[in-house]
Design a protein around this nucleic acid. Structure first.
Lengths: 153, 153
DNA sequence: AGAGGTCGGTCTCTTCAAGGAACCCTCTCG
DNA sequence: CGAGAGGGTTCCTTGAAGAGACCGACCTCT
């Protein structure tokens, strides 16, 4: 993947990408999210090389997005599960799904649907403002420098 | 970057990644979003290789996320701007920012802030259900197969 | 006891993209 | 005229992705 490390940039997007920006990482996360958390399951369901899967899982565990836990003592068997940090990354996946559904799903329609427990309906995610709860997107905001800002051109 | 093409998978996450999953693409988008849309500006502000920048821009234009437009006739000068499809990708960036702020910003605090026009306050994005408008995250939904689903293990 | 299967990886080899840097063409300005 | 900016293209080197073989611990079946 990239050789330029994004982790040191003064940009939350870059730092997020540093954690899950490498190819396959979001798909691994998606699978763990739906309960596919064992090495062989992941490898087969994604068609990823075992070597790369090993690297990604280790990286995600080191970055506290996944945890590796032993679910069987004898024989020793492991599975990967989301941490809290990883669970919050699923927001990102749901927004990806939404965009992919809108712009790339084609005739067949969306491959998965979400049923929201709170209302029982099939819905999708929308972005709202944390302060006023009304819809929020890039056309309705001003972008201002924050405390952690570096000088940006 | 990845050699496995994600575009043909029956998964909206994979198809979204096919468009903007390559390293640098989200950062290019972010810069175009804040008005840094010229080749040299992008190259300098990101520190990306000119070759890779050329490739990414061409890919994003071909995928209708950016458009290349001439803003000066003589001398011919071009800039890149978001299409509607690209503008909607900014939702994704805002969610990335939110996660990065929460989990990677450290002491310094978030590098950018959003002021929401609707309420005038500094806020961040939250995910709400499109049907009932209440908060929605991965712990509060059932994931069901949709019309475009393939058999998933 | 041996054969075969599963799980969770490691190792090796090849190919192809990222990074870096030099080069190029057109146009403008002094 | 030369210098400089804008917007790339070309070339070379390095290193990650992909494919697939291999491995060791453990279980089950006969």
């Amino acid at each position: 993947m990239q050789r330029t490390r994004f982790g040191d940039m003064a940009c939350s997007i870059a730092r997020t990408l540093d954690v899950i920006g490498e190819p396959w990482s979001p798909l691994i996360l998606r699978n763990v999210m739906v309960g596919i958390g064992r090495f062989d399951q992941l490898q087969q369901s994604l068609g990823i090389s075992r070597k790369v899967l090993t690297e990604r899982l280790r990286w995600l565990v080191d970055n506290d997005v996944l945890e590796r836990r032993q679910y069987s003592e004898r024989p020793p068997r492991y599975e990967y599960a989301l941490t809290v940090k990883g669970t919050e990354l699923c927001d990102l996946l749901m927004v990806m799904v939404r965009w992919g559904d809108r712009w790339t799903a084609g005739e067949a329609g969306p491959p998965v649907l979400y049923r929201h427990h709170a209302c029982g309906e099939i819905g999708h995610v929308e972005l709202h403002c944390s302060v006023c709860d009304r819809p929020m997107d890039v056309t309705g905001i001003d972008i201002l420098p924050g405390p952690g800002a570096a000088i940006t051109t």
